[in-house]
Amino acid sequence: MYKISILPLAKQDIQEAAIWYNEQQADLGKRFTKFIRSKVKRISENPQLYPVRYLSVRTAVVDVFPFMIHFVVNESDRTILITAVLHTSQSPEKWLERQQ
């Protein structure tokens, strides 16, 4: 199993989406964060299951919700850095701006 770190901006992505979902329907934000946690756990168990999408950044589509978790794997110390959690309709430039 790999150790997971989540960048503050990625945590903010999750919080903002959860708030938005809660505004749409009671407890939907809680359900969203549950699916995020579940996918992060699966990523930590086997990150190579997920394709490299940009340079060395892999992405995992969240079940049920239209979001992708963007992450980088460091094999030498068996760590994963989650850099973004973005809605699939958002422009890839938003993720690229974070890499600058």
Rank of each mutant, 00 (worst) to 15 (best):
K3G: 09
I4F: 01
I4C: 06
L7H: 14
L7C: 13
L9T: 14
L9S: 05
A10D: 14
K11L: 15
D13P: 06
I14L: 01
Q15Y: 06
A17C: 13
A17H: 03
A18H: 06
I19W: 02
W20R: 06
N22C: 14
Q24N: 11
Q24P: 02
Q25F: 12
D27N: 14
L28A: 10
G29I: 01
G29V: 02
G29S: 01
R31G: 10
F32N: 05
F32S: 00
T33G: 02
F35P: 03
F35K: 07
I36N: 02
R37V: 09
S38N: 13
S38Q: 13
K39L: 08
R42T: 12
R42K: 15
I43H: 11
I43R: 05
N46V: 01
P47V: 07
P47H: 09
L55Y: 03
R58W: 08
R58G: 04
T59R: 13
A60L: 11
V64F: 04
V64N: 07
P66V: 11
F67Q: 08
F67R: 13
M68L: 13
I69P: 05
F71M: 12
V72M: 13
V72H: 13
E75R: 03
E75L: 10
E75C: 03
D77K: 03
I80C: 04
I80V: 03
I82H: 09
T83W: 04
A84G: 09
L86C: 05
L86G: 00
H87R: 10
S89E: 04
S89L: 00
Q90E: 01
Q90G: 01
S91P: 03
S91Q: 00
S91R: 04
P92H: 03
P92L: 12
P92W: 10
P92S: 08
E93S: 02
E93L: 02
W95K: 08
W95Q: 03
R98E: 07
